[in-house]
Structure formats: C-alpha cells, structure tokens
Design a binder for these strands. Structure first.
Lengths: 342, 342
DNA sequence: ATTAGCACTCGACTTCAATGAGTGCTAACA
DNA sequence: TGTTAGCACTCATTGAAGTCGAGTGCTAAT
C-alpha cells in the first residue's frame, strides 16, 4: 500500500506532467508549496513508486513520467474534481439556446463545443434510431420500376430506402400494403420491425395481395436498419498540437483511426452508464497507445440514448474533462427527457 | 519562346521530380536516355529556364525544382497523356458493379477508389438536390406541437424537416395544405419551390385555410434547402505520406481545411466543365500552397451534376490523375444519364 | 527517518571538419 | 557559334567530439 506521502508525490507528478508535458524531477518537485521535504527524500520515494510501477523514467537520468498504472491510480483515487467556471458553463448551455428540433444539430454542436473547450478531439455518438417507435410508413412510387419507402418515427427521425418494384405489383397492391403495414407496425420499435413483419404482417399480406411473398421480401429488405448510430466529431486536428504527437507516424495512425468510423464504435460503446475512463492500452488499440478516452452517456429517462466522448493524450486534463462531460451529459439528458417524455 | 531542347529539359525535370521528390541536377539529367548532351550544356539551359521562371533552386548549389509556372507549362503543354492500365480500369468499373440505387453509395465508393488508386486525397461533390423535381410532399404530425415534412424528388432523394405546428392549425387544415402543395408543386425543381410557394400557393391557401399566413411561413421556412451539396472524401490521411508534408504545421493547416467543408466548396466549384487543374497558389488558399487540385465534372445529359476532385502535392502525378478523373467522370456521366434520362 | 553531498548518466546542444552533389564560369574544341 | 571539359566554389548533410545541465542513486552525516 502506498503511504500518504507517496500519494502526494504521485499526485503532484501527474498534475505537473499534465501541465508541462516534461518529465518531473525531484528538485523541481521539492520547490512546490505542497511539498515540504527535500529532493533526496523525494528521490527515495520516487524510486519506490517506480518499483511499484506508478511512474517511469524516459532514460536513466531523466525525471519521472506517470505510467498507465499511475494515471489509472490518479484517475481512480487522486483526481480532484474541479468545478467548472461560469464561462464554461454558459458556453455549454449555449448549445441548447436555439430551438431543439434538429436532434443532429444539437449533437453536432455539442461535439464542436466540447473540442473547443478542451482542445482535444470530441466524439459524439448520436441517438440510436432503433429504439424509436414507428410512426408512419409511406411508399412513394418514383416510376414503373422503383419506389421509395419512408419510415417516420415518433421522434421525428426519417429513414428512407429506394427499392425496385416487383413488376407484378400494381398501384392498388402498393396502397393495400402500406395500409396493412401502418395498421400493424405503428408503435413498434425500429429494431423489432423485421421480426414483426414476418410474424404478423406476412399472413395479412397473403390474404390481400397477389405475389405477396415478393412484396414481403422487398419490404423486409428495405427495413434492415443501419446497425450503427451516427458519429459526430469535433476538433479532429486538435491532437496535432499535442507535443506527444510530434511524430508523423503516430499522427498518421491516430488520424487514420478517427477517419474509420467502424473502428470507433467498439471504443466508445461501453456498456456501463456514467463516466468511463480508458487509459492508453486499456483501449485495446495500437493507435490509442498514447491516448486516453473518456466517455459519458446521455439518456431519455432511464433509457440510454448515446455517448459523448473526449479523446486526448494520456497526459490529458482528466479532472476538467470529466467535469465537462458530466455536466454536458446531465444537461443533454434533462433536455431530451423533457422533450420526449411528455 | 522556349527551344525544343529547353522544353525537353523542363519536361524531364518535372517528370523526374514528380517521381523522386528530389531536386534534379544536371549530371543525373545528362544520364537519361532521352538526353544526349552534356551536363554543362544542361546547366546553361537550366540557367535560362530559371531566369524565365520555370524552375527554381532550393539553395545556391542545389539541383532544380519546378516552379508553379513550370508545373503550369508542364500541365498545359508537356504532360503526356498516359493510358490507364487494365487493372485501374477494372477497379474503377467495379464502382458500378452493384445496383445503382443509392446514389450516395456510388459517390462514396468513387471517392474511396480514387484515393486508393492515387494515394492522394479525393473529394467528391455529390449531385445537387436542387435540380431535382419534387415528386411528393407529405406532412406527418408527430404530436400536438410538431410535425415532420417530407419532400421526395423524382430521383428518389428524400429531404425532411421537423417544424412546430402553429397551435391554431388542426388535422384537416394540414391535410388540405398537403393536397394543395402536391397539386401545385409536383414537378417543380427544388430550387424554385420557394418562389412558387409565394407566387401560386399562397393564394390558394388563403382561400381554404384559416391562419393561412402562419402555415405559409412555417412551410416556406422548412423549404429552405441546404445551400450546398454533400461532400465525400477519400484518403484524408494520404497526404501525410507525402515527403513535402514532413512539417507538422503544414499538415495541420491542410487537414484543418479538409475538415471545414465550407472552405472546400469554393475550391472545387469551378464553373467550366471538363478537367480543371489548379496549381499551388492558383487555388487562392494559403493551406493549398504546396498542393494542386484537379477537378472534373459529371453530368446527366448536358446538365452538370457534381464534381470529382483529387487533392495532391504540387508534385503530383498529373498525367495519371487526369486520366483517372477523365475516365471516371465519363463513366459516372454515362451511368447516371442512362439511369435518369429514360 | 531525513537530508546534504557527490559521482555519475544521458539527452540536448554546439562546434568542427569531411563529404558530395550541385552550381557558374572560363577556355578549349568541333 | 554552339558544345563540352575542367575547375573553383557553395551549401546541405553527416558524424564525431565536447560541453552543459538536469536529473539520478548511493553514502554518510544529522
């Protein structure tokens, strides 16, 4: 177990390194106000901390740098929750200043503001459409061969699919189909549509429509909803200003990852609600070796809707970022809950 | 005017520099097969070419590098059109292998393949929705306060807007409005909708609906179509591998530009059809100082729809890129024309 | 248990010389 | 008169040698 003094030293090392990005030496530590013992004592303690794996040297005679284990301990036990200043708060609240309709606009604005406030990269996972309930289906023929199917959810989300019209289907068939679909599927969550179609709608279609199975498959095909929610980014290039990314190859692999949305999902789709911190290799991704990812979820009522996240260097301002995410996720949740739970 | 020999030398310098990214010296030039005179002669010619502004030195005793003027001359007069090899052709044609419905998919795939084939960054400007003609309007109430308006075009493109329902409007009003809109606006190009609404629909609404003006403005507001077409990118990080971008600050300003779509539009929205090459500062953009942009348009019939572009270093393989763009834009045009002109 | 003192390490920076790819110029040549 | 060989010169690059200073670990004294 670590002594109080070791904890103090660890905390000051991490704080200082986060601020300066320079390895911290015993002499400069001894000059801090918080610390009242000599550099030699600190050296001894640092040697112990190093042996325990909380800090590292970059070379034999360098100052110390927090290890991933050190950051982890810092985040779990030492980080002093920092109150947001008024300016930050008002900036965040400006997100909700305009009318709230365009869900995506809010999400996008959140991403932008988060990255501006932190100078890191923000990632926001939009609300999953699959929870929403179907409000209405429309099918609009474009010409003899094709039609577009439109699905509107109770939250105002619109999905559409273009598909080939089976040649044997005529206008009245289409109309009947749409009526059946609306009658049977309204109120069903998007993710359950496919199931429901085969279980309940298929039979009805058979009774009313010739070639019902062709129609059925065409529609069921169109209903395959996108598996993933939309991602929004802010400050994609912010990481370029971080001193740890002076190396082009690191930048390259990081930016490449950011530009592959499919690689991002597994990173931010954590299951647990609340704030989540993943440090360096905890992300299981080689491009993230020098990065930490802090995520928070937002919800409507008790139902988790999406995730907001900040991607920064492991040497990130954990305290500030955590406060910001906590604040924003709370705000998002309450605004959305107000909006959709009446 | 330049002599034939000077032209030859200029061409070889540009070709060689494009390949190697190294300043070209007189001795290495004299060893080339195409060149049958001595390095001293070449030095004389190079001095003249430099005086005329076609090539430059990086320092007093370095080899020569093409200037922007040199690239310009090369592109206008010297570039030898290079036939595409079979592999490239078949890769490009694979874009059209699947069914053609999802316009965006094709565009996106084009961007990806262009960047893969060139190792530069590709930018594709999607088809402007504003040319499309309205096929159908639907308005679907979500609850007492809001509704979503859906606009379907003859090409299957779907736009939607959520808006507040004026409290005095009831279901029958809404229905009447939709009927009027469909009756009057079907077949109208999206960009003309706003005009038409005030000129023709306003009067009709007044006759049938109480509070017609509130309704009118609500609808007209929703109709403000996005000013810009969608942009798609491929290989955003490809430029990081180019040796001229070893400098982080250059990378930063370039990537920052790429991530600001609004800065991209003016760059690629050239008016003239066909291939267009903009070299370095011709782009009027400080982030593009060391970059060239090659654009090509694609159309349906005679109507220009969108733009495909490649962004690379000024030291770009002009010949190859031009061929690729020419080929792809021709293919896109013919596929789209077939699809939409029947 | 703490601290002063000291030898030692190592990255960062500077200086210096050597190297070599390039130039411009001049004089000889065809 | 145009071409070329030859030569002096320039300058970025490389690597070796030396200095500096911030840091360490260890020991002995407090």
């Amino acid at each position: 177990m670590l002594t109080d003094r070791q904890l103090l030293i660890l905390q000051v090392i991490v704080d200082d390194f986060i601020r300066s990005a320079q390895p911290v030496g015993s002499r400069s530590l001894s000059k801090k106000d918080e610390i009242s013992f000599s550099s030699a004592t600190i050296r001894n303690e640092m040697a112990d901390l190093e042996e325990l794996g909380y800090i590292e040297k970059t070379h034999t005679s360098s100052g110390r740098v927090p290890s991933e284990k050190g950051y982890r301990y810092y985040v779990d036990h030492l980080v002093s929750p920092q109150a947001l200043n008024k300016q930050d708060i008002s900036i965040i609240q400006s997100i909700f200043a305009e009318k709230i309709f365009e869900f995506e606009k809010i999400i996008q604005k959140s991403a932008k503001i988060l990255s501006d406030l932190t100078n890191y990269t923000s990632i926001v996972l939009g609300p999953a459409a699959s929870f929403n309930k179907l409000k209405r289906i429309q099918i609009i023929p474009l010409n003899k061969e094709s039609a577009v199917a439109i699905f509107v959810t109770d939250s105002g989300h619109v999905e559409n699919r273009t598909f080939y019209l089976p040649p044997t289907v005529d206008a009245s068939d289409l109309e009947k189909t749409v009526n059946i679909l609306n009658e049977r599927l309204t109120g069903v969550a998007l993710e359950d549509l496919n199931d429901k179609i085969y279980k309940e709608v298929a039979m009805l279609l058979r009774q009313h429509i010739r070639n019902y199975d062709l129609m059925l498959h065409t529609i069921a095909d169109s209903l395959k909803m996108p598996a993933n929610e939309k991602l929004f980014f802010g400050g994609k290039t912010n990481m370029l200003s971080q001193p740890e990314f002076h190396d082009i190859s690191k930048i390259r692999s990081l930016l490449q990852m950011i530009d592959h949305e499919e690689w991002i999902y597994p990173l931010i789709k954590n299951d647990s609600a609340g704030i989540n911190v993943k440090i360096g290799r905890e992300n299981n991704n080689s491009a993230m070796e020098n990065c930490s990812l802090i995520t928070a979820t937002y919800s409507v009522g008790a139902e988790k809707l999406g995730t907001i996240a900040i991607l920064g260097p492991t040497r990130m301002e954990y305290s500030r970022v955590i406060s910001l995410l906590q604040f924003l996720s709370k705000d998002l949740t309450s605004v959305l809950t107000n909006l959709y739970q009446k």
